[in-house]
């Protein structure tokens, strides 16, 4: 790890003031679960690190019945928040599966959303990949079993955040604070594909922070997240999916379906939503929606198996949301 200076920001204003405009030179640290590893591997080499743990960490209902989560809230605080679990089960289910107890105890909501990709070419210093300003994506003709099955590159990471998936599905908004004030960015606009932003994964400028996540009132929906990972103890998901169903009796009147770990951004599956709308949820309709979700998948040389897994994640998220058995 390269040495760096440290600013312990007492509040949002101090944190913003301590950040700068040059990418990578000054980085915020919250739980450190992502950044410390990045620095140890010399992938991040900031000159200054700014502690943002003292920013707002409250999790509270909004006046209109939504939920506002301070970005500095830890994952365990979210998991243990009874109100959040009741109203936004898909979010809390995703949070409960992140990493390990130790990671959930330190890692924050903001950090989870803004974490960098786990792509092993990105994380290992030897590979000067596109995302690090290098000439090529090593995954294309290399070891791409964990890489994206959606998107056209040129970088084939999968987005690392599990929370991003339900946040997008619930239609969440990020409050972004920077030197010129604050702005609200819809989750749908927050995450960016590599052709739009190769060096980052979202719209945050180097001197901006996510300070809050706001979820609109859930309404009368049924929602669930299904994560599929290989190693049960601790592993990154091979795929996950959130399904949010607006029901009218037994019939789905509207659906929001988002997949994770399959693309450089949380990947909305509108075809699946359309396929499910107007149907009663059964193994067959959930399966048909899941087929639709992965119909346009473009697997790489070694990750076609992930298409099947993503399909299963979607199907099971739908069944789980509907309260049906998943296997």
């Amino acid at each position: 790890m390269k040495s760096f200076a440290y600013v312990d920001a007492a509040n949002e204003q101090e944190a913003i003031a301590a950040l700068g405009t040059q990418r990578g030179r000054i980085l915020p640290i919250a739980g450190g679960m992502d950044l410390v590893g990045l620095m140890k591997d010399y992938v991040a080499q900031p000159d200054r690190v700014v502690n943002v743990k003292r920013l707002d960490r409250t999790i509270a209902a909004t006046p209109d019945g939504g939920l506002r989560i301070g970005a500095a809230a830890t994952l365990i605080e979210l998991v243990e928040h009874a109100g959040a679990a009741r109203a936004y089960p898909a979010l809390v289910q995703a949070a409960a599966e992140v990493g390990t107890p130790q990671i959930r105890h330190a890692g924050t909501v903001g950090g989870n959303v803004a974490q960098r990709p786990r792509c092993w070419y990105f994380r290992n210093e030897e590979f000067q990949c596109l995302k690090k300003g290098g000439p090529r994506c090593f995954a294309v003709d290399g070891e791409n079993q964990l890489h994206a099955i959606f998107g056209d590159g040129p970088c084939h990471i999968v987005h690392a955040s599990s929370l991003a998936v339900p946040i997008l599905a619930y239609g969440g908004t990020f409050r972004v604070a920077g030197p010129s004030g604050e702005r609200d960015v819809a989750a749908a606009d927050f995450f960016q594909m590599p052709d739009e932003n190769l060096m980052g994964e979202n719209v945050l400028r180097p001197n901006e922070l996510v300070t809050h996540v706001t979820l609109p009132p859930p309404g009368r929906v049924r929602s669930a997240t299904c994560e599929i990972r290989f190693k049960q103890s601790h592993d990154w998901p091979l795929a996950l999916a959130t399904a949010i169903l607006t029901m009218s009796g037994e019939t789905v009147r509207g659906a929001r379906i988002v997949m994770g770990a399959v693309a450089p951004v949380p990947w909305r599956a509108q075809a699946a939503e359309a396929a499910l709308t107007g149907q009663a949820v059964t193994e067959a309709t959930a399966g048909a929606a899941a087929d639709a979700a992965v119909r346009d998948a473009k697997p790489m040389s070694g990750n076609a198996y992930k298409v099947q897994i993503a399909r299963t994640a979607v199907k099971r998220a739908i069944l789980k949301a509907a309260g049906l058995p998943t296997v």
Binding site: F4, A5, Y6, V7, E14, A17, G20, T21, D47
Partner: peptide, 10 residues
């Protein structure tokens, strides 16, 4: 942007 920033280290 640095006015008033209390920094320690490196």
């Amino acid at each position: 942007a640095q006015a008033g920033v209390r920094e320690v280290g490196p």
